[in-house]
């Protein structure tokens, strides 16, 4: 039987760009170019490796996001995923993490799955909570923040490097996993991959396709509210000296002045 893998990928504003908030205090997605979150490339990579090891597997990449988010799906398809699902709806504007999780859950159930693979965190929201939330909503084990993962005999195993310990984890499929950027470099799409991706199916769904009411998501439906967003005041320009042989001593003098020494 085929192993059905769903990889959740997010389309995010480029972190090296000048990211801003829009007037309604949602992330301004126009000011900066978007891309497939680098941390989700690791999820695509691990899914591809798991699929390689399986007798028969099918990888669906899933995103919830604006029209441009198709770019993220294309990238994942050109890396080697088989098909894509894009949930797109004007009423999704301003949806927060919990709202996104409602949509992803419905979409994952719609696609059908044995394994859901996520990145460790999105590079814009950086919450790192969606994988755990998806496991809660889907009612399946969470095997998250893995730096090593493998799937065999209907079981997923992996290594989680925590704050105080390294843990070896194990759960039966179906399950939700997330992988860290320690899990192994993501491949670059090959020319052949890029050409092949153009022919791969991308299914578009809106909220009504998933049976979700507009009020459950979007800015109005959000479980949290941002009241204020202000740019961090620029740091007052510091003192910069060139080392002429006394740089270390000068620095010590500064630290003493600040009572660190």
């Amino acid at each position: 039987m085929s192993l059905r893998i769903v990889v959740c990928v997010k389309y995010v504003p480029d972190a090296t760009g000048d990211r801003h908030f829009a007037e309604d205090l949602t992330t301004d997605r126009d000011a900066v170019d978007g891309l497939l979150s680098e941390l989700d490339e690791y999820a695509v990579e691990q899914a591809l490796q798991i699929a390689d090891e399986a007798d028969d597997a099918e990888i669906t990449v899933l995103t919830v996001g604006p029209e441009d988010a198709k770019d993220a799906l294309r990238k994942a398809l050109s890396m080697g995923a088989d098909k894509a699902v894009h949930v797109e709806d004007d009423d999704l504007h301003g949806t927060d993490a919990l709202g996104t999780s409602v949509v992803l859950t419905k979409a994952i159930e719609h696609i059908g799955y044995d394994l859901v693979v996520c990145g460790m965190a999105s590079t814009d929201g950086t919450m790192g909570v969606l994988p755990a939330i998806l496991a809660e909503r889907l009612g399946v084990p969470q095997v998250t923040l893995l730096s090593e993962v493998s799937v065999e005999d209907g079981k997923v195993t992996g290594r989680r490097d925590g704050d105080t310990a390294t843990e070896q984890l194990e759960a039966a499929l179906p399950a939700v996993v997330s992988v860290t950027d320690q899990s192994g470099e993501a491949r670059y799409p090959s020319f052949k991959g890029i050409m092949a991706a153009k022919k791969k199916p991308v299914e578009s769904l809106d909220l009504s396709d998933l049976g979700i009411e507009a009020g459950e998501v979007g800015l109005e439906g959000a479980w949290t509210k941002v009241d204020d967003a202000s740019p961090r005041p620029p740091r007052t320009a510091g003192t910069i000296v060139k080392d002429e042989g006394e740089g270390g001593k000068q620095l010590a003098e500064f630290l003493a002045g600040q009572k660190f020494v």
Binding site: R235, G238, T239, I240, V241, K242, D243, G245, E246, G247, G248, K249, Q250, L251, A252, F254, L255, A256, V261
Partner: peptide, 28 residues
């Protein structure tokens, strides 16, 4: 990184850091 600093030293860390360490130790 120098855009963020309160104090910055432009120099070779292998010169600056050991000197700083010695200075901190002797002051302490």
């Amino acid at each position: 990184i120098f855009d963020l600093v309160d104090y910055g030293v432009v120099g070779d860390l292998f010169e600056v850091v050991p000197q700083l360490t010695e200075e901190v130790k002797s002051r302490k």
